[in-house]
């Protein structure tokens, strides 16, 4: 393993899968997304169905105020919640804080979980929002207004500034650094633009589902998503763009 990757893995040692057969991706822990995923097999689907049934039973019991049942849910789901927090925050102490915050919030909001999404997906959305909020609170520079992040044009419709490509990403270390830049940039977006990215990327909703969830028209959802991409592109160009 290259030194850069090893350095990045400090503090994530307890995420090594217990058994190699349990790992569903070929990757180092903590640097997923840069590896090839294996297609799920049939037995994985059966296991997933059983897991969802077990979750439903535990949720029903936890709603009656049974702390044992909620503790079982915590034991089942905290590892993935923590992994997502660590993935975004890259800091063990912050990830532990946000994991705790997310599960406490899930407990408070358990009655609002309606089961349209899997419980694990619902938790991933909660922890992603909290992790982004944490990143936002750590930001150093003053915030640009959203309008300033959208592209600008001359009266004749041409770009006011020339547009450069992003730099090539040379190695794993740069990919990891780049991901950090992206998370911090997403955290800078206004809440409703951040929310739509989380719904698409974490909850994997399509345009119609996103519009229904946000109670806006599909055209409004498309426009909001397009503007989120544009604003984020501007933020990334400042860090990743080649010099003009």
């Amino acid at each position: 393993m290259p030194r850069s990757a090893r350095r990045f893995l400090v503090g994530v040692s307890f995420f090594v899968p217990l058994h190699p057969a349990e790992a569903s991706t070929d990757e180092y822990p903590g640097i997923r997304g840069f590896s090839v995923r294996r297609a799920g097999d049939k037995s994985a689907l059966v296991t997933e169905g059983l897991a969802a049934d077990a979750d439903a039973a535990l949720i029903a019991e936890a709603r009656t105020g049974c702390p044992r049942a909620f503790e079982q849910l915590v034991r089942r789901h905290a590892p993935r919640v923590h992994r997502q927090a660590l993935w975004i925050l890259r800091n063990e102490a912050d990830a532990a804080d946000v994991t705790q915050e997310a599960l406490v919030k899930a407990h408070q909001k358990l009655d609002s979980f309606r089961g349209e999404a899997k419980f694990s997906t619902w938790l991933q959305r909660i922890v992603t929002n909290l992790a982004l909020m944490k990143l936002r609170s750590q930001r150093r520079r003053p915030e640009a207004s959203f309008e300033e992040l959208l592209p600008t044009f001359h009266e004749d419709g041409h770009h006011t500034r020339s547009v450069s490509p992003f730099k090539e990403c040379a190695d794993l270390e740069e990919q990891v650094a780049r991901r950090d830049v992206v998370c911090r940039a997403i955290a800078q977006l206004p809440a409703n633009y951040q929310e739509i990215l989380v719904l698409r990327c974490v909850q994997e909703l399509d345009t119609q589902e996103t519009a229904d969830f946000l109670k806006i028209s599909t055209n409004a959802a498309k426009l909001r998503l397009h503007r989120a991409h544009q604003a984020l592109r501007t933020l990334l160009a400042a860090e990743l763009g080649v010099d003009p």
Partner: peptide, 20 residues
């Protein structure tokens, strides 16, 4: 590239981590 990077930055993965 931005759209791909968003996905890589936010999408939860399927790997099964060990207990917390």
């Amino acid at each position: 590239e931005t759209v791909e990077l968003e996905q890589k930055a936010l999408a939860p993965d399927d790997a099964v981590p060990a207990d917390v």
